Simulated assay, not measured.
Amino acid sequence: MHYLLAVLSAFSSSVTSVLGKYSFNIGATVSQILFLRFLFSFIISGMIFIFAGYKFHFKKFLLFSILGIINYGIAAYAFFVGLQYLNPAYATVIYFTNPIFVSILQTKTTKKKLNIINASAVALSFVGVVIANIGERAFENNKSMMFGTLIILFSAFVNAVFIVSVSEYIKEKNSNPFENAFYTFTGTFIYYFIFIIRNNEVNSLSSKFLLSGFILAVLATFVPLTLNFIALKKLQSHTLSLLMPLELVFASILSGVFMHEPFNVLKILGLMMVGLAPIIDITNVESQTSY
C-alpha cells in the first residue's frame, strides 16, 4: 500500500517540469510561479487543518517550516532556475540523482547500511541518469545546458537533505501527514511572500499565471508531499528516493505529448534503467520481510 502511494506521488508530481516550462513561456518568473504554487498549497492545507480540528503546535510549525524552506525555498527554486535552460524530461532525469545523495546521507546519519542489492539499485539509477545525459547531449550541447545541469544537481542534493531529515520525524507516532503538510506549506508560503515583495514582483503578477499555479499546488505539491509523508511512515528514505524517479518516466511522456520533446535510444535506455532501480530495491525489501 505504501509503495503504491509513493508511485501515485511520483505520477502526480510529474507535471512539475512541464507546467514550470509552460509558466516560463507565458512570462512568469521563478519566484512568481513558486509564490502562487505555495499560496494555493497553503490555502488547501489550511482548510483541511481547520475542518479536521487540528491544534496548532508552534514547535512542529517551526520544524516543518524550516524543512519546507530547505526543500521548496532552496531546492525547488534551484530546480526551476535550471529548468529555464533544459528540456523538462531531461531536467527531471538530472534531478533524480537524489537517490545517490539520500543513500550517502542516510548511511552517515543512521546505523543502517546498504546491502549489495540496495547499492546496485542506486548504482543503476545513477548509470541511467548518465546515459540519459549522453542521449540529451545529442540534441543540445552548450554552456547553458551545463549550467542548468549543475543547478539541478544542487537542487537534488538539497532535496536529499530534506528527505533524510524529515523521514525521522514522520515516523513518530504523533506525526500527522496533513498537519505536517500545513506547517510545511505555511512556512514556505511566508518565505515566498516576503521574497516577491523584496524583489518587487507583486505588481507584475498576472491572472494568466493562476491556473498553472493552482495545478502545481494540487498535483505537484499538496498531493505528492502528503502521500510521501504517509509512505515514509513505513518506507525507508532511500526506498522512497528510488521510487520518486518514476516521476521522470511520467514526465517524459507528458513532455513528449505536450512539449514535443525529442528522444533517442540512449535517452530511453536511461529512463528505463532509472525506472528499473526501484523495482530491484522493492523486490529485495519484500524478500527480506518474507523470512
Rank of each mutant, 00 (worst) to 15 (best):
V129Y: 04
S45Y: 06
A6L: 06
V81L: 03
R198S: 02
T289E: 10
N118W: 13
L227G: 00
L266A: 04
E261N: 05
T186C: 15
K59R: 15
I104R: 11
A6V: 07
G82P: 06
F11C: 00
G135N: 01
I104A: 13
I50R: 08
Y77L: 08
Y169V: 05
T184D: 09
I66G: 01
F11D: 01
G187A: 10
A6H: 07
I197F: 09
F182M: 03
L34I: 15
S165N: 02
K234H: 05
N25T: 04
R37Y: 07
M244Q: 01
L266Q: 12
F64P: 04
Y169F: 15
L34H: 05
I280Y: 15
T109S: 10
S65V: 11
I43Q: 09
K233C: 00
Q236H: 13
S125T: 15
Q288L: 14
I196H: 04
Y183Q: 08
F24S: 06
A251P: 03
G270Q: 13
V129L: 14
F209C: 13
I215E: 07
I215T: 13
Y3K: 05
S13I: 08
F178S: 10
E286M: 10
E201I: 12
F96W: 02
K59G: 00
I74G: 02
Q288W: 05
S175K: 09
S41H: 09
F42V: 10
N174I: 08
S65L: 12
I33N: 04
N159Y: 15
V265N: 07
T109P: 03
L211M: 15
K173R: 06
M146E: 02
G213I: 11
S167T: 11
A89N: 02
T110R: 10
Q32P: 06
I163L: 15
